[in-house]
Structure formats: structure tokens, C-alpha cells
Write a protein that binds this DNA or RNA. Structure first.
Length: 436
DNA sequence: TCTGGGGTCCTAGGACCC
DNA sequence: TCTGGGGTCCTAGGACCC
């Protein structure tokens, strides 16, 4: 443990336009082309390259509203390819592992990682930042920016500066600045850019005359707690250089697991809806077993299309608590089916469905019910079955094996539209690039 | 015709108990 | 007819994040 008066030196490394950059790694011809990556079903824009941002393409814009413009602009819209992004993310994260020991790296999201350099006090952070940039580029092909600060919130802010202000060359170290210089930087940034300040809070702050990051940093944390909440108080303290948000080296197990998707085409009947629900539950149960968890409650929901005023809207949802915790796909699916039957109403045009696993415990800790359903040897057989299931699906792809008719790979009316999907360059032998 | 998916934390308010 | 005060647990909803 370090004494509390040692200032922290925290880095945030963040890939630029991550999904777009991933597409470009294997498609250099897309370099300098305005590019966007679309959500599932090619629904709306979830990532934009610098060129498409310059064209004014907003985040979240539905692709069908852009398609005509796109032709004129030469804007390319790729379907999202999460296998590819996930794989490049793993490579990105492991190349960062060269700079700090494992206990000083926190993988924060698919394209961001915090690194703690507090235990390397003699390192020149700006030089380290450039080394990180170079190594990640060389090892993965991804462009990144690096920000350093005395807290996670400062590191986030520094990263924002490194990205938006070219004079920093992609690396910004706020810890190397004097108090005055730091405030100067903060004065130039709007308060809504701060990590933890969302749309709602930003409006309320601006109404009170807190317009820039420097304004927020100058606030009294106690007053902020009175007028807003403890979360914003923590943000202010972090901006002032007090590290309040802990480092999380190993991700905590999930408290809830969700699996949901919009359908490729609307569904109407109970029979049709059963298929995606089984499919989603298979994915959710797999995630549950991967973290050695056991769920006590199961939730299911359906949605009609809220953008169609001519439709009668019906978006039911329900959660049931099971008599005993389970990680068994068959058991969880059976419960999901009974919930589905209970909430389904005929005559609606459903466009999306999802399942939830809630009240998750560690598996061996989970309480059995008073009257255990299965004798121990049968329990063991179930476990073996689930292990085989996960292994087969891991090896040959999702839904190679499933419970009942979770849908066999191939023709399903409800599966995603992905018109412009890139190959699985790095995770499938079939799609491996050839160099001739 | 076509509008994403998956999480966390905090708070307020109701139910219930002593 | 009067109807205290404090505590816990749970849930729904809001706000935020990527």
C-alpha cells in the first residue's frame, strides 16, 4: 500500500474511433475514406471516422436516413463485426501489458484501459505515452491517444485533450503542468465533456453558471453534494486531483446478464417468438456459467416498434423468482418460456425481445431449495452436459448445439441483417488474409 | 421497409417490523 | 378516538457509462 499523500499517476489509453479503426486494419483502402460502423441490423451509426465526423454525421443516426447522402459523399457504412473488434481489443490490451504489471492495468471497456504508473515514479510520462502509442500501432495497427492525470477523471480529461487538440501530438500529461496551466486547459473545455457529467446534469450545471471544466473544478464538493448527489461530488474531487474512484484490476462478476436483439423482420406469433427467446437464453446462460454464477430470477421482455405511431404499442416485461438458483440452460429456458407465454398478447407486431438473468450468486454458494429437485448423481450429469454444450459452441460457433429449437444456424426470419459485414480476418482460418 | 445492446450506481418511496 | 419513531429490505426509475 502506498501512503495516501503520494500523488497518483494514472493513464487512460483510448483507441481512436475504435470500430472504424478495426475495419481499417485489414482494409487500408478505407483509410481517409469517410467511414461509419452500424449497430446490429444495420440500424444506426455507432462509430464514426474523423472524416465522417467532419461531414457532420451524427452519432446514432439511422442508416436508412443516410443512405442517399452516403452515395453522394462516398460515405461507407460497415455492419458491425464484434468478433473482429473483440479479438483486436484483446491484442490491444495485451500490448499495454508491457508497460505495467497486471495489477496496475484495468480494462475499462472494449477500447479503453487505465494504467497506474504510481509505482513507477521516475518514469517520464510523456515519453511513455509516445512509446505506448507507437507500440500499439506497431503491434495491432490501431491508433490510440494517451492521457495522464492524478485521478481517473483527470486521465479521462487528459485523453480528451490529447484527442481534440492536435498540438499535443496524441499524448497529454496533466500531472506535468502547474496548477495554473492545468486550469488554463480546463477553461477551454465545456463542462459536458467531463466523465460522469451527462446531458441532464450538464444542463443543470450550466443554468447555475458552471460552463467549463475549470468552473466545475472550482466548486465546493460539499455544496455539490447538497445540490446534486454524491456521484457528482466525487467527480469534482477527482478533477481537483483526489483519486476517489478505485482501480479494478479484475472485473467483478456481473450482477445481471442481459441478452437481447432486434429482429431482422417483425414477429407475430408465440411460436415464432419462442425461438429468439431460447436463443437469447442460451447465450445468457453461457455467460452465466463462464463466470461460475447461478441465477435466482429470470426476466423476459418484448417490444413493438415505438417509431411507428400507427401500431398499437405493447412492450410487456416480467420477472420471476425461481424456487432454486440455476445455471442450467434447460431449466432457465423452461422458465423463460413460461414467462413468455404469460406476457405474450396476439395481434402485435413485435420487433425485439430479450431475456435477463438476475440475482446472480456464486454457483457453489447458491442456496438449493428445501426439496432438491435432482439427486446428486443426476446433478453431476447435468453439469457435464452443460460443459459439453459450452465447449462445442465455443469451438464450432454459437448454436452448434442447443436446447430444443433455439434455432439451428442458418435460416431464421428473426436473425440480423448485416449487409456489409467484413470477414472474420483474425478469428477464422477461412477468412485469413493472404499475402502474395 | 429500415431506428443498438449491455451494464452500474444511487435515490425515493412503500412494505413491513418492533 | 387518539395514532410514534426508527429501522431494514425491496423495487422502480433516473442518471450515467461504453
Amino acid at each position: 500500500m502506498k501512503p495516501p499523500d503520494v500523488p497518483r499517476r494514472i493513464a487512460l489509453v483510448d483507441a481512436n474511433s475504435f470500430f472504424c479503426s478495426c475495419e481499417r486494419v485489414f482494409r487500408p483502402d478505407l483509410e481517409r475514406v469517410p467511414l461509419v460502423v452500424l449497430s446490429n441490423n444495420d440500424g444506426c451509426v455507432v462509430a464514426r471516422s474523423a472524416e465522417s465526423k467532419a461531414l457532420g454525421v451524427p452519432m446514432g443516426k439511422p442508416w436508412f436516413e443516410l443512405r442517399e447522402q452516403a452515395k453522394q459523399w462516398g460515405l461507407v457504412g460497415m455492419s458491425s463485426n464484434y468478433e473482429l473488434y473483440g479479438d483486436l481489443s484483446r491484442r490491444f490490451m495485451s500490448s499495454l501489458g508491457c508497460f505495467v504489471p497486471p495489477e496496475d492495468q484495468e480494462i475499462y471497456s472494449i477500447d479503453e484501459s487505465f494504467l497506474d504508473f504510481t509505482h513507477q515514479p521516475h518514469l517520464d510520462l510523456t515519453a511513455t505515452g509516445h512509446a505506448i502509442k507507437q507500440r500499439v500501432r506497431q503491434w495491432t495497427g490501431l491508433p490510440v491517444c494517451v492521457g495522464f492525470g492524478a485521478s481517473k477523471t483527470q486521465a479521462k480529461l487528459a485523453n480528451h485533450v490529447a484527442k481534440k487538440q492536435p498540438q499535443w501530438g496524441g499524448v497529454c500529461d496533466l500531472t506535468a503542468l502547474t496548477e495554473q496551466e492545468r486550469l488554463g486547459v480546463m477553461k477551454g473545455i465545456e463542462v459536458r465533456e467531463v466523465w460522469g457529467v451527462g446531458r441532464r446534469i450538464a444542463i443543470q450545471l450550466m443554468e447555475r453558471g458552471v460552463l467549463t471544466v475549470a468552473d466545475l473544478c472550482a466548486c465546493d464538493p460539499k455544496r455539490i453534494r447538497e445540490r446534486f448527489n454524491v456521484v457528482l461530488e466525487r467527480t469534482v474531487r477527482e478533477l481537483q486531483g483526489e483519486a476517489c474512484i478505485d482501480f479494478e484490476t479484475t472485473p467483478p462478476p456481473k450482477q445481471q446478464i442481459i441478452a437481447s436483439r432486434s429482429f431482422g423482420a417483425p414477429l407475430y406469433t408465440l411460436q415464432d417468438l419462442a425461438e429468439p427467446i431460447r436463443f437469447h437464453m442460451a447465450r445468457a446462460a453461457e455467460k452465466l456459467r463462464r463466470q461460475a454464477g447461478s441465477a435466482c430470477a429470470v426476466g423476459v421482455w418484448l417490444e413493438t416498434n415505438r417509431f411507428r405511431p400507427q401500431d398499437v404499442q405493447h412492450s410487456p416485461s416480467r420477472t420471476v423468482t425461481m424456487p432454486e438458483a440455476s445455471d442450467d440452460s434447460a431449466v432457465l429456458t423452461a422458465w423463460a418460456m413460461s414467462v413468455l407465454k404469460a406476457i405474450y398478447r396476439p395481434g402485435h407486431r413485435y420487433v425485439k425481445a430479450g431475456v435477463m438473468l438476475l440475482d446472480i450468486r456464486e454457483r457453489h454458494v447458491a442456496q438449493g431449495s428445501l426439496f432438491d429437485a435432482l439427486p446428486p448423481e443426476q446433478d453431476l450429469r447435468r453439469e457435464t452436459l452443460m460443459r459439453v454444450l459450452d465447449k462445442a459452441n465455443g469451438k464450432w460457433g454459437r448454436s452448434t448445439m442447443g436446447i430444443g429449437s433455439a434455432g439451428i444456424k442458418g435460416d431464421r426470419a428473426w436473425t440480423m441483417q448485416r449487409a456489409n459485414l467484413s470477414p472474420a480476418y483474425s478469428t477464422s482460418w477461412r477468412d485469413l488474409r493472404e499475402v502474395t
